[in-house]
Design a protein around this nucleic acid. Structure first.
Lengths: 231, 231
DNA sequence: CATTATAAATGAGTCAAATTCATTTCGGGG
DNA sequence: CCCCGAAATGAATTTGACTCATTTATAATG
């Protein structure tokens, strides 16, 4: 038997979650303007006025939904990075994770990106901080990669980040547009990573790295010494 | 002396332009929600109802403003591409042109991107077509680049496009955020192009000076002499 | 258990702004 | 000068976010 939630704190918590879940569903289905506060209230089994006890206004409500999403997204990114050692393996993981999660919550993210961009600056603080926390994971991977010598140091890390997420976002949109978001995911990840590594210019065919003749000569000399000593 | 506009057609035309200009200003200044139809009407010296004779609704009005912007943008891109021959020169031109124009109309573009993303599919046709016409210029440059052997053929052109515009858009946002949109523009263009060419992986260091084969031959001869002397 | 202070919740009412439409004005051809 | 349809007007309608006076539920206290 499910015990009734007892403490005030618990009931308030449960209600907030119900509201967030309802808002998530309605925003995702109808978009921002299309979502009516009445409908969210009905779905959460709550009066319209109650919404405003939990969130200052419609924007704040959406921001609440987004914040929950970002929390999951960032936590997943951190776990994954910890699980890999190589910089490019980490980047590949981050790309896959980002695409998976973003495609799963596509409508929601489009809303967020849209609002983020038309709101006056001062209201963006919230979104900005969420995003900052998320991309920090990427930034750490890059700066460690540079430190280890796996990435060129002359590329500014922030530009690399813009390239990474900018490309992924656009690619995700293209996939969605074509309805290929499940089938073509892996090839896209592979290609993006390859582009990130090697660029798009056709490599001028360089002969495979020449054998290090000097080292070989050195080995021969040491052989000679051994022979001489044996005598 | 400025002759009064006479024909009906001319007057209607002039009015539409006045409305678009007013809308442009108000949208850019106040954002989509912040822009009031009354204010646009006042600026265009027109009654509120008149706006609806020229544009179905507020969204259509914004779309009109955006369409004008895209027309300029696309025309500029085409002129530039025609003026250069080399693929990477063309890409560099396109990057600079895109950043210049987008930074100049930043507010407006943020609005457009925002709306584009929260509107239901069926209302996106308009924006989609505008964008398609614009990126077609890029696509032609790329496919010609592949044809000429200046770009690797195994990268799908659409992914290259997503990389190009995705990165530029994100980079532009970063620049704006830091208020460095004028100072740091050129370095960003250079870096983006370099990334596009060569990627981010550190090239495995090749010995700068080729091994001195003559010297090595000398060392081998000396080894041989030592062996001979022992006999 | 009754009392009461306080926290939570309610939903009818307010208000701002987009959109409509009945009415008016305009301009050019007869 | 008059008439007609096109163009323009702005008051009225509609919609939906947000407020707030009122009600209800909860837990602490005697």
């Amino acid at each position: 038997m499910k015990r009734k939630l007892t403490t005030r704190r618990e009931r308030v918590q449960a209600r907030e979650e119900a509201i967030l879940a309802a808002a998530h569903a309605v925003f995702a289905q109808r978009g921002f303007d299309g979502a009516k506060m009445v409908e969210i209230a009905r779905r959460a089994r709550v009066a319209e006025g109650t919404l405003y006890l939990y969130f200052k206004n419609k924007h704040a409500l959406l921001e609440g939904v987004i914040a929950a999403f970002y929390a999951r997204l960032t936590a997943g990114a951190e776990r994954g990075v910890a699980a890999y050692g190589d910089t490019f393996e980490r980047l590949e993981f981050l790309a896959r994770h980002h695409l998976d999660e973003c495609l799963a919550e596509w409508r929601l993210l489009e809303l967020m990106i849209g609002l983020y961009r038309q709101l006056p600056e001062y209201r963006n603080r919230g979104y900005f901080k969420l995003n900052k926390a998320y991309v920090t994971v990427f930034d750490r991977v890059v700066s460690e990669g540079i430190h280890r010598g796996e990435l060129r140091e002359e590329v500014p890390p922030w530009l690399l980040r813009d390239l990474f997420y900018g490309t992924l976002e656009y690619a995700a949109r293209t996939l969605k547009l074509r309805g290929r978001e499940n089938e073509d995911l892996e090839p896209v990840i592979r290609q993006v990573l390859a582009l990130l590594r090697h660029g798009a210019a056709r490599p001028t065919p360089v002969p495979a790295t020449p054998p290090d003749l000097a080292a070989i000569a050195g080995r021969l000399e040491r052989v000679a010494e051994r022979l001489e000593r044996r005598s």
